[in-house]
Design a protein around this nucleic acid. Sequence first.
DNA 1: CGTCGTCTTGACAAGTATCAAGGCTGGTGG
DNA 2: CCACCAGCCTTGATACTTGTCAAGACGACG
Lengths: 247, 247
Amino acid sequence: MSYTVDAEERALARQSAETVLSRRLGGLSALSAADLVVLRQLKGHTVAAGAIVHSGAIGSDRPGYFLSGWGARLATGASDTKQIVTLLLPGDGFGVSPSPWAGESLPVCTLTDSVLLDASAVRTLVRQRNSGHAGLIEACERAAWLEQAYALNHLIRLGQQSAYERVAHLVRELFVRLNDVGLADRNRFSMPLRQQIIADALGLSCVHFNRVARRMRKDGLIDFVRGAVHVLDTAALAAMTGGAWIG
Amino acid sequence: MSYTVDAEERALARQSAETVLSRRLGGLSALSAADLVVLRQLKGHTVAAGAIVHSGAIGSDRPGYFLSGWGARLATGASDTKQIVTLLLPGDGFGVSPSPWAGESLPVCTLTDSVLLDASAVRTLVRQRNSGHAGLIEACERAAWLEQAYALNHLIRLGQQSAYERVAHLVRELFVRLNDVGLADRNRFSMPLRQQIIADALGLSCVHFNRVARRMRKDGLIDFVRGAVHVLDTAALAAMTGGAWIG
DNA sequence: CGTCGTCTTGACAAGTATCAAGGCTGGTGG
DNA sequence: CCACCAGCCTTGATACTTGTCAAGACGACG
């Protein structure tokens, strides 16, 4: 039941393992040499797919960063229904918001085998509002703000878009986000999720997602292949998801 | 096109006009005498339904509190589609979060004729983190946190509930929130919104909402009558919306 | 080679939107 | 007071979207 990251993805991750965090956070605020040292010293560990890595009870769990692999923040509702609130991609963190928002109270799980960095050191600095790390703290603040914006985008998808539009809208968001950390090609990125999970996130059945995906391929918009996504018509994708975009 | 607040609602509002804010914020944190003075000195003004009272650009607009009437935070997407992200009820504010979250960047509009208080004075205190008003600041922080939780609840509704469940879930949330400010009876509250608007918020067509509402009446669960909601079976409502609840 | 998990496809059922018409209510002007 | 009008609610008929069930295909892996 582990969704293996394919070889290509693994290679990409190895290449950028050291840079994914500095790219992500450095893109949000200028990081000092000291900030980079802090990030470089974070210790990594591998986690299997499907593990809960943060309970949501603030302060009770280790904060972390996804170095490789994908995760999700879940709103675990009734019986067994789980709604994905935001997807966490390499470079995204949890438990390191300077000002915790409601989403920080939701559990975080891995969707694929992942490499996580223990971000306790970052959280400590952020909590202290350590003035020697203003850049890093600013970056964490903006990262949290962005995650909220992504959750709002997700709300728009679920609230007022058709299945076709939802898929397009999500793909565009993922493309932009992965591009920020150097994990997207010009028009291609790796998406190591089963269709079932993507469908779950979008509030669709996986059968219907599959049909939508096929239609998109036929339309020359997006091609889903074994763990990867090809954006065939960037302009059309941007046009059709042009409005309804926060952040 | 103004959705007039009915007489009963107006009477209730008059009764509780002075207490709605102190009830709301006082319920979130203990307010000092000085805090209450600040709240009591806020100046009110009436606004017609459908007005945009906050653009979303942080700092550019007057912050405010709804004293009476309902509003909404909108994710104004493409062309003309607008998704309601959170409903704002009497006692709810905008632009007064100590730590702005992504939702604060969305515009706020009135859904009914409303009385708003100008909350500039509160914002000033909150921005300064004025130590003489720790209680008030704490209350604002928690109010912002709650609004985020409501947005997440809305996301759950849209993502994984049927029309019937969405309506029940929303009614339960509204009942709880209005109860907090003393605007709900034991099993009844005023909801001065057209069905069209409720349906919009829930991502439904108003025709379908109407049918669901009728079924709920037949089921003895909820009765919608001219601008008000009767919860006929509190236990069943709580049971059916028991899970899937954040905050 | 068989097994297991996932993807794909078809047939069908259920949920929901749309269109259109009629009904109710509250306001307005004679 | 009545007639009328406008806006909203209600209802029916119909079509489209999406979910469910079930079976087959494909690929990975032992």
